[in-house]
Each structure stands twice: as structure tokens, then as C-alpha cells.
Amino acid sequence: MKSIWKESIHWSIFIAVITLVLAAIFSIVSTAFLSGVGWAIGMLVVLIIVLTGVFFDMIGVAATAASEKPFHAMAAKKVPGSFQAMLITRNADKVANFCADVIGDISGVVSGTAASAVVLQLTFSAGASDGSALQFTLNVIFTAVVAALTVGGKALGKTFAITKSTSIIFQVGRIFYVIEEKCKITLFKKKRKKDA
């Protein structure tokens, strides 16, 4: 029991540090990018950030919903990506935490900040001043639309993730396989005979 808590604490500290670094990177990149573009491109950037959060949330849900058994059979037949998919389902709690909580929550925060920057650009392009009624109205509209797209997208993504969990995780496993085999980057420890 102590080892489970010890591992959980180590993971929590590790993921908190990763979140801090990723949130800073996402924020810097989005702010730098939005400062050099117009409001129309800014809206597109906000949409991409929202879709990124929805996509990773879907992977996190699929990881917890998928069964490990189909990947055992595929791994026995040496199907590329099946071993990685099996390890994803085996570590579903960590995968879901990273995808849904870290990337999903960061995307939510950054999309809100980016939406505020777009509202500011749109306000100034319309000739209104900061703190005007137009800015207030646009801010309410943008915040509501971003929230609706995020929640609605995640609801749709969750349904898709639960019904197609095996296919989704297998595709993610194939991506990891390509990264490991083609790019020579080790993502998983090689214990194929024992794990398969």
C-alpha cells in the first residue's frame, strides 16, 4: 500500500512540474503568435487551441475505456503499435491524467487568455476604447462561445472515445511505434516477451 502512495506522490510532483513548464510554453507561444496577427487569425488560433484540448481529452477517455486484451492478441502477431497500445491501456490512469488534465486544462486556460487577446484586438479595430461597452459585450460573447465549444466538443469526444476506444488507442500506439522505431526515440521500456 505504501508503494502505491509513494508512486502516486512521485507522479503528482512530476506531472505538476510538467504542467508548469507546458503551461508557460503554451502561454508564451500563443501570446507571441497572437500579438503579430489580426483578430480573424486570432479566432482561428483560439479554435485550434480548443480542438487540441478536445482531442487530448478524447485520448484520455479512450485510454481508460479501452481493454488491454485485444492488444495482447495483436502483440502476439507482431502488429506494429500493438505493444505500445497495450502499455497505454496498462497505464490508463497516467495517460488520462496527462491528456485530459494536463493538456486539456492547459488548453482551457490558454484558450480563455487567447480569446481575451482577440477581443482586445477586435475592440481596437472597431475604434472602441479599452473598457468600453463593446469590449464588455464581445468578451461575454467570446467567453460563452469558447466555453460552449469546449464543453460540447468534449461531450462529443467522450462519446466517440468510449464507443471507439480500441481503435483510438491502437492509432495512438501506432504513432508511438513510428516515433520509437523510425525516429529512434525510446518511449517505453522493452519488455515485450514479459508484457505481451
Rank of each mutant, 00 (worst) to 15 (best):
L47H: 09
I48K: 12
R90Q: 07
Y177K: 00
G108W: 05
A40F: 06
F56Q: 06
V109T: 10
S12M: 13
I179K: 02
P80V: 00
Q121Y: 04
T166H: 14
A144E: 13
V178G: 06
N139W: 01
T166V: 13
A155C: 08
G53C: 06
D195G: 02
A62R: 00
A161N: 06
I48M: 15
F142G: 10
I169R: 02
Q171N: 14
K77W: 08
A92Y: 12
F55I: 05
V102P: 10
V54Y: 02
V37S: 14
W5C: 10
I13W: 08
A32L: 10
A144S: 15
G131M: 10
S107I: 11
S67F: 05
L20K: 13
G38L: 04
G42T: 10
D105C: 04
W5D: 13
L47N: 12
S129T: 11
I59V: 04
V54D: 08
L22P: 11
K6N: 08
T52A: 14
N139R: 01
K158P: 04
T159F: 07
V45R: 00
Q171D: 15
G112L: 00
D93C: 11
A126L: 03
V37N: 13
M43C: 07
S27M: 15
T31M: 12
G153N: 08
A115L: 14
D105P: 03
I28L: 05
I175S: 04
W39M: 10
V109G: 08
G153H: 08
A76H: 05
W39P: 05
V178R: 02
V172R: 09
I88Q: 05
L187P: 02
G108K: 03
L34V: 01
W11T: 03
H10E: 12
L87G: 04
G127H: 10
V17M: 12
A92D: 15
T123L: 03
I168H: 06
V119W: 02
W11Q: 08
F142A: 07
V37K: 07
S107R: 03
H72V: 15
A75H: 09
I103N: 02
V146T: 14
A147I: 11
A128N: 01
D57H: 00
A144T: 09
F188M: 00
K190F: 02
R192F: 03
K190W: 03
D57I: 06
I48P: 01
F98G: 01
G173S: 10
I18M: 09
S35Q: 05
C183E: 15
F170T: 07
F170E: 08
H10G: 03
I185Q: 00
I103C: 09
K194R: 05
I175L: 03
E181W: 05
F98T: 00
V79W: 07
Q121M: 05
M86F: 03
M58C: 11
P80Y: 11
V145F: 05
F14E: 15
A144P: 01
F55R: 06
T166D: 15
V178T: 01
Q135E: 14
D105M: 04
S125C: 13
L87C: 03
F142P: 02
I88M: 14
C99M: 13
G131Q: 11
A115G: 14
A62F: 01
L149E: 07
V29I: 03
S111Y: 04
P80D: 12
